[in-house]
Each structure stands twice: as C-alpha cells, then as structure tokens.
Simulated assay, not measured.
Amino acid sequence: MVTVETALALAALVVVTAGMAWVVSLVATQARCVDAARDTARAIARGESSAASQAEGRRSAPAGADIAVQVADDVVTVEVSVEARPPWPVLSHLPGVPVSGRAVVALEPGHPDPLTAPDR
C-alpha cells in the first residue's frame, strides 16, 4: 500500500514541478518581449529607420514574435507579442498562452517621423 501512495505522490510532484517550470518559462518569455519592445522603441526614438529598429528588436525577441509600432504626438509605442507554447514535445498539443510586452518612448527632438523617413 505504501508503494502505491509513494508512486502517486511522485507523479503529483512531477506534474507540479513541470507546471512551475512552465510558469518560469512564461515569465522569461514575457521579459524577452519587454526587452524587445524597449530596444525597438529606443532605436526608433533615436531616429533609426523602421527596418533597422525592428531588426534590433528581433535580436532580443522570442522566436515568432510580432512587433507592432505606432508613432503619435512625438511618442513611440511598441508592442511585442508571441504565443508561448510548452517547451516539451509531450505537451506541444496544448494551446499557446499569449504573452506580450510594451514600451512607450518619446521621440528625440529634431528627428523626422521614423515610420515615413527613408531607410538609411
């Protein structure tokens, strides 16, 4: 009887540990989205072209992330979003969790609208 209880307890422990690892993975993905949004917004605020700014953000973004940029009233808003999936093949059939990060930065004075400026 003790063997069955131990086996069930160990199985429950494995499930809880996997769940905690998944939560840590989601937090890390969200942090990467925030970093990518910040990097992209800073590059645009400095006057970099839209393509160069997004390339800079993609370096720190999770794979498959979408980067959306808006410029209005001398303020750049960047949102990076991705659908995070469990990293283990056994759980790949589970639905993804939407994760995003956002950054808002003021444009540097004297720079033209970076979304309409020609690429350098």
Rank of each mutant, 00 (worst) to 15 (best):
V27Y: 02
A11G: 14
S49R: 01
I67E: 05
G47M: 01
T6S: 13
G110E: 01
D74M: 00
G19D: 02
I44E: 12
E5N: 09
A31T: 14
V15K: 03
G57N: 06
D35E: 04
V90Y: 12
T29G: 08
V97R: 10
W22H: 14
R58T: 10
Q30L: 01
V90L: 15
V2W: 13
D39E: 10
V23Q: 06
G64V: 14
V104H: 01
R120G: 13
V82W: 12
A41K: 09
G57S: 04
G47R: 01
L8Y: 02
E56F: 00
A7E: 07
M20S: 09
P114D: 09
G47K: 00
T17P: 03
S50G: 08
S60A: 08
D39M: 02
R85E: 09
A45K: 05
V90Q: 11
M20C: 01
A31H: 14
Q70W: 08
A65R: 02
T3D: 07
L8G: 12
V15C: 09
V75E: 15
S25G: 07
D113I: 02
S50F: 10
A72Q: 10
P98R: 05
W22E: 15
S81A: 15
T77V: 13
Q70V: 11
D39H: 05
G96R: 10
V104K: 00
P62E: 09
T77C: 05
